[in-house]
Design a protein around this nucleic acid. Structure first.
Lengths: 114, 114
DNA sequence: TTTTTATATGCTAATATAGGAATATAGTAA
DNA sequence: TTACTATATTCCTATATTAGCATATAAAAA
């Protein structure tokens, strides 16, 4: 694989590496399509900030936009992106389970020390 | 979803948002398991830098390590991470196709202008 | 035309990240 | 013990990213 391809992969993941942008993807995945104003309202984040995050996602090729009158509607361009989250969720669940197991172990040790 | 969960998703994607770390994942996905020295040698990146990237991937829960004597072997903890790349590849291919279509269109316009 | 509405962009300060060089740690061997 | 090997960490500097505010653009309405 060429360095350019690695950069392209990295830029897609970088676009997804911000909690606000994850929220935007989740919102669009749920509602299908939304204008900037509704996204801003729904997430309670001011319009310029939402606009900037949307342009980052768009530049990465993850979402696309369509102008309709005054409004710009955004939607997910690559539906398989939802699978990212299913996998990421497995990682997160594994972490939570590991932390839980660890705290149980600590409780056991405390009992033994008594 | 709580803000903490969004942060966890974001940190997983952030861990993948660097070309060197993509290369490491690809390497581990292919070879199964590798020590730091072999990763460093294979990617021609110096050891402290590889070590830092590995710790970022490990903290995100994407890879795990096992110490064996002097060496530390790393392997992928979540096999589904490979699906990330399959999807990301679709995004990349779509971009490449779009660019190609655009350049064809420009050629058409140039012909008409003659 | 002017005004209003929806979105995008420019600027700045604070914060985060990267790589390189040097150093620290931990296990092995002599 | 000392020497060696494989990893990890620290410090430093350069660069990148963020949110917030102000401003610019673009379409619709008056």
């Amino acid at each position: 694989m060429s360095d350019e391809i690695y950069d392209m992969y990295a830029s897609i993941f970088k676009a997804l590496s911000h909690p606000t942008r994850i929220k935007i993807i989740e919102l669009l995945a749920t509602k299908g399509e939304m204008c900037v104003c509704n996204i801003s309202e729904n997430l309670k984040i001011d319009q310029p900030t939402v606009s900037k995050h949307l342009s980052i996602l768009k530049n990465a090729g993850i979402i696309e936009s369509k102008k309709e009158g005054l409004m710009v509607n955004y939607k997910i361009r690559m539906p398989c992106i939802v699978d990212f989250f299913r996998c990421a969720n497995q990682v997160i669940q594994a972490d939570i389970n590991a932390k839980f197991a660890l705290s149980l172990k600590k409780i056991e040790v405390m009992k033994e020390e008594k």
